[in-house]
Amino acid sequence: MKKFLNDIRYTENRVPLNKQIINSVLILFLGIALGFFSKFLDCTPSNKLPYIFSYLDVSNFLGRFAIWVTIALCVSIYSNSSLRAAINVFVFFAGMVTSYYSYSKYVAGFFPRSYAMIWIAFTMISPILAFICWYAKGKSNLALILSAMILAILFNMTFVYGILYFDMRSILELMTFVCAIVVLKRNTIKDTMLMFVLSCGIAFILNFVIPFSFG
């Protein structure tokens, strides 16, 4: 625990306030743009989109959790402090959810209230999750375990499996999972492999305890 607290003091860097504000505004605009883009794809017939979008099923991919969790993880890890991580991830999801459902209501002409409530609730708790995730960048054993737990959640969003089968949801989910490994990688290959093995074990336990998917 002492080493974990030392990691916190070591990794929280000071950044000028004006730069912090600019970064948060840019992250907000990123969320708005991605939310708009996601709903645009959702409302556009596949035969009017480039073939690659249809082939990779980008619209449905953006409707699942893995990509958004991975983006939030990147925003959190690369923020300069746990507090900034909480703020940045919140403004990202606030922008994304607002633009997505504004497009749905004012352009597409419908508002799926139940789904919107799920995403609003997720947005409200996202600062807490981002605050915790930021500490995965540390060098302690607790940070390694936290990284493995995050990766385990993404593992279950990427793969579907049971006693006699194992498959991935899509190549895009696999790419987000690999991205998460890169972001969470440890200082040595050995520790990174340990993180990955731990994440697999945790994922199997979570899959048994929580028998429904967030994919």
Rank of each mutant, 00 (worst) to 15 (best):
M96W: 13
S76K: 04
V69A: 10
Y115E: 10
N18E: 07
I125L: 10
K185V: 04
A94L: 14
P45E: 11
V15K: 11
V160G: 05
I128M: 11
V89C: 10
N6C: 14
S76D: 09
L194F: 04
T123N: 14
I210E: 00
V182H: 03
I128C: 08
F36M: 13
P50Y: 07
L184N: 05
V25I: 15
A143R: 05
V75N: 06
I67D: 00
T192P: 01
R186Q: 04
T11M: 14
I145T: 10
Q20W: 11
K2W: 15
M175A: 14
L206R: 04
I125F: 13
I153R: 08
T192E: 01
K48H: 06
A143K: 10
S199P: 00
E173I: 03
S213C: 12
T188D: 00
Y100C: 06
F40T: 12
M124E: 11
I145G: 03
K19G: 00
A130T: 03
R9F: 12
Y10S: 11
L146C: 08
F110Y: 09
G138H: 12
I22G: 01
V209I: 10
L5Y: 15
F36P: 02
K190D: 01
V107F: 08
Y78H: 09
C133M: 14
T176E: 02
G215E: 12
L184H: 06
C43G: 14
T70P: 00
S79A: 12
G63K: 10
S140Y: 09
E12V: 03
V178M: 03
I8D: 01
V75C: 08
T158C: 08
P127L: 11
K3Y: 15
Y101W: 09
I181K: 12
F92N: 06
F40H: 14
T70N: 00
A143S: 15
M195V: 06
V25A: 09
L30I: 14
R84H: 06
V178H: 01
G95I: 09
R186Y: 01
F214L: 14
I150Y: 02
S79Q: 12
V178Q: 01
R186T: 02
R169Q: 05
S24L: 07
V197L: 08
L129K: 06
S213P: 05
L5R: 10
V58M: 09
I189Q: 03
L146I: 15
I150M: 05
Y165S: 07
N18P: 02
L30M: 07
L206M: 05
S99F: 04
I77E: 04
R14G: 05
T98C: 09
R169K: 09
